[in-house]
C-alpha cells in the first residue's frame, strides 16, 4: 500500500434486490488527488459513493480509510454515515439535498454538527462565504428559495463545514448552466489546492474533461494520463 493512500476499496458490490448496481469495483485514492468517476446514468457511480459513505448496504473485500490526522487505517465497511463524518469524510449528495425549510446559515451549521469549536466553525463559515459570496447575501433565506446553482454551492459548502479530509461530490454540475459549471469546478480545484482530497462523480465526461482542460490547460486525452486528475470510466 502506497503510504499516500487515503482510501482503498477492493471488490465493492452493491445490490438492490435482484439488481446488482455495482460489481467488483476497486478504487484507491491518494492524499491530495482529485479522482473522478465517470459513467452513464445508472452505471452505479452514485451507488459507489453512497456505499463509501455508508448510506447503502454493500459488500467488499476491503474498504479502508487512512486518516491523514493520525495515519491509522480504519475499516469503514458497514459503519453508519455519521461515523464517517467523524473520521473526516463528507459527501455533497446527488440532487443537492438541501434542507428546504432551513436557512442557508442553518444548513451550514448543520454541516458542522460534529464540531464544537465555535470559533473554528465561524471561521469556516466565512471561508465558505468567501468561496461562494452569493451564499452570504442569502444566508437568512430558506434553502428552498435558492436557485439550482446556489443550492449546489450550498451543498458543497455544507460538506466542507465538517472540515473533511476526503470530500466526495456527487454530480455537482447536475442541472447547472454551463457558466456555473465552470465556476463550480474552479472552486473544486481551489478546495483541492488547499489540501483536501476529492472524489468526484460526473455523468458527462466532457464536462469534467473540458472544464479540467481550461484550468489545467491540457486536452481530455492528456488529462486521462495526468496523475492529478484520474478518470475511472464505469461501464454498466
Amino acid at each position: 500500500m502506497d503510504d499516500r493512500t487515503m482510501l482503498k476499496i477492493e471488490k465493492l458490490n452493491v445490490n438492490y434486490g435482484a439488481i446488482q448496481a455495482v460489481r467488483d469495483v476497486s478504487i484507491s485514492i491518494n492524499r491530495g488527488e482529485i479522482v473522478t468517476l465517470i459513467g452513464a446514468n445508472g452505471a452505479g457511480k452514485s451507488s459507489i459513493i453512497r456505499a463509501i459513505m455508508g448510506l447503502v448496504k454493500s459488500h467488499s473485500e476491503e474498504m479502508t480509510f487512512i486518516s491523514p490526522r493520525d495515519g491509522k487505517p480504519v475499516s469503514i465497511q458497514g459503519k453508519p454515515a455519521e461515523a464517517h463524518v467523524k473520521l473526516g469524510i463528507s459527501l455533497s449528495p446527488e440532487g443537492r439535498r438541501i434542507l428546504p425549510q432551513l436557512t442557508v446559515e442553518e444548513n451550514l451549521t448543520l454541516g458542522a454538527y460534529i464540531r464544537d469549536d465555535a470559533k473554528g466553525i465561524s471561521d469556516d463559515m466565512e471561508y465558505v462565504y468567501s468561496l461562494f459570496p452569493r451564499l452570504k447575501e442569502r444566508r437568512k433565506q430558506k434553502g428552498s428559495t435558492l436557485s439550482g446553482g446556489e443550492q449546489q454551492m450550498l451543498a458543497v459548502g455544507r460538506a466542507l463545514m465538517s472540515r473533511p479530509d476526503l470530500l466526495m461530490l456527487d454530480e455537482p454540475s447536475l442541472g447547472l448552466a454551463p457558466i456555473l459549471v465552470d465556476e463550480v469546478f474552479g472552486i473544486i480545484r481551489e478546495i483541492n489546492a488547499q489540501g483536501r482530497t476529492i472524489l468526484l462523480v460526473e455523468q458527462n465526461a466532457f464536462d469534467v474533461l473540458e472544464v479540467g482542460a481550461v484550468g489545467l490547460s491540457g486536452t481530455g486525452a492528456e488529462l486521462l494520463n495526468d496523475p492529478k486528475v484520474r478518470a475511472a470510466y464505469l461501464g454498466g
Binding site: I38, P178, F206, D207, E210, Y233
Partner: peptide, 15 residues
C-alpha cells in the same frame, strides 16, 4: 454544443 454536448462531442459521441 455549448449548452449540452461539449466541444468534444461533435466528433465522438459519448465517451
Amino acid at each position: 454544443v455549448e449548452a449540452y454536448l461539449g466541444a468534444g462531442a461533435a466528433e465522438g459521441g459519448a465517451a
